[in-house]
Amino acid sequence: MVLDILSWIFLVAGGLLGIIGGIGIHRFPDFFTRLHAAGTTDTLCAALILIGLGLQSGLTLASFKLVLIFAFILFTSPTASHALANAALHGGLEPLLDDAEEEAGS
């Protein structure tokens, strides 16, 4: 019973975090801030949801696969975000340093 409540909490927290990441992608003014929003919530939302699912399956082959999926996401997601930021900077995309309103005003 406790496990069900725990996995409920993990799953709902992971889902909410994902939605927050999705909203963050729309709210932020500049590419690099969006990358920050998407990058961090991606990994943690995956972690929470996979842990929530792992609690449900206990110590079976399924939970081992979940651990593997989490390990791959843990390594590939930040790397992809880094490669993306690197390519964006190399491609000449300047990060928005001062405030967007000021820039629009001046």
Binding site: G15, G22, R34, L35, A38
Partner: peptide
């Protein structure tokens, strides 16, 4: 919740001004 996030990511993919926004949302 995941479907909502995917919808938001797709919306950013369509709206995204730079091509890097599109890759970011496809990655997400």
């Amino acid at each position: 919740a995941i479907l909502i996030t995917m919808g938001l990511a797709l919306a950013r993919a369509l709206l995204g001004p730079t091509v890097y926004d599109r890759i970011l949302s496809v990655n997400m």
